[in-house]
Design a binder for these strands. Structure first.
Lengths: 253, 253
DNA sequence: AAGTGGTCTAGACCACCCC
DNA sequence: GGGTGGTCTAGACCACTTA
């Protein structure tokens, strides 16, 4: 019954990757490769345990997280099934800047105002539920469509998530894509939206009059464990942008 | 090591409720009752195990699901902490005016400007995908919180859905509730949001200066068969209101 | 060094599904 | 009845935090 921490059996990696994550990666790879087709059944848990050389508890941790990501679903006395491939595009989200640009056939670019590691202020730390002074990566940009300034985006990312950001070109890359590409799962976004008059600095960046209406959107994006990944304030010139979304509601009103 | 399925130790229930759900309920109750205040630390896992008379694996299942629900967060090496209270009641659709009022403990009322049957203009008919001239019920209101004007709401409802509307008091009733009460299922809401300067009429209703930033939200609400039930334009005084929502995304990015 | 969460195991029994 | 997922346990070691 002793837990012998032998060399991980699933992958020949060095160390730090937990077994259940390795198992998850293997399963996901087999699904992606088409080895198990959408809608079909996986081998029984006890069989997968042998194949991956891990315990059932560990295997189930991997399977469960894959359910949360919409890859699998379980059926009590029947088995594990691969979710049919046609997964909808993010339902219930605001259309992102990049998506809007694509829909309208415009070219999204950015002028980077600031892109550096700094320390968190008290307010910022509170938003991230971390100690004040904890290092944060800061990316400030003017976002444009076909060279026309549309919005100013001020984003903050915890330093341990922003590894390698120094070599990323944020004038063309999407911050969401970069974070997601690092393996983080942007699961939830708490959002507030209000209308405000533009202050002098903002008016300068957007080339509008001071006091012009501006759409002020603030988001905190978290992963599945509620860990904050990104905090952003985006201020859109009122007459140059329109947020779009489509909500579904399960019940009541 | 044999699992003796004794009578559940956590709660004196009959049977079917899993132990980890019972544990979850107990923990949630202690938090709700203020026994453990927001931001404070829970007892160590091994201690909770004894208190609840369950194994650590089971306890952690309960704790983990509470994290996903935004009630707790874990800090490696330090402990489990209760999430600050405000992070809990985020709606997964745009929070409605009535919901906002309830959350903030304010009284929502309306001053009805217009409430009558009319015919649709070209633009309105287009929104509803029906022929111009088709009868529409029109409800225009100034919406208030504790007597302070917050927004102007102009809503349109197809006449066949608005049966009996003449006898409804819209100064206190929610349009959503009335429609839902007639047996219609408000399933989906397509929304656009932008910032605009207030025109003279709007400024008069809201008691603000002309040109002040206003949040302009337009929605078309449909039932499960995509049939339009309601079209509304709501314009909020920029410094008196803030839209709130929390988006979830099922998978990747 | 002590305390705390994170991961992992082997084995057991239960509830559900299908033959 | 046999197969499959769902729940549960006791015990072990690792990694991080704090002192």
């Amino acid at each position: 019954m002793t837990t012998e921490r032998t060399t991980p059996a699933v992958l020949p990696s060095e160390y730090p990757e937990p077994l259940w994550m390795q198992a998850k990666a293997v399963l996901r790879a087999r699904i992606a490769s088409g080895e198990v087709s959408p809608g079909s059944r996986l081998p029984p848990e006890r069989e997968l345990c042998q194949m991956l050389a891990i315990s059932r508890v560990t295997l189930r941790k991997a399977l469960t997280t894959l359910v949360e990501e919409g890859v699998l679903r379980s059926a009590h006395g029947r088995g594990w099934y691969v979710t049919s491939a046609e997964r909808k595009e993010w339902p219930n989200t605001l259309e992102s800047f990049s998506e809007t640009a694509r829909r309208m056939g415009l070219l999204p670019t950015s002028r980077v105002l600031r892109c550096e590691l700094g320390t968190s202020t008290y307010d910022e730390a509170e938003a991230f539920q971390m100690a004040p002074g904890t290092p944060l990566y800061r990316v400030d940009r003017v976002r444009m469509l076909n060279e026309v300034p549309i919005a100013v985006d001020e984003s903050l990312v915890p330093a341990d998530i922003a590894v390698g950001f120094d070599s990323v070109d944020f004038s063309t890359r999407s911050l969401y894509d970069v974070i997601a590409g690092s393996g983080f799962h942007l699961a939830q976004a708490d959002t507030t939206i209000e209308a405000r008059p533009a202050d002098a600095e903002l008016a300068g960046h957007l080339d509008i009059e001071v006091g012009t209406p501006v759409l002020d959107m603030r988001q905190i994006v978290r992963d599945g464990t509620q860990r904050p990944l990104l905090s952003s304030v985006i201020r859109y010139a009122g007459d140059r942008y329109r947020l779009r979304t489509s909500f579904s509601r399960s019940a009541d009103a």
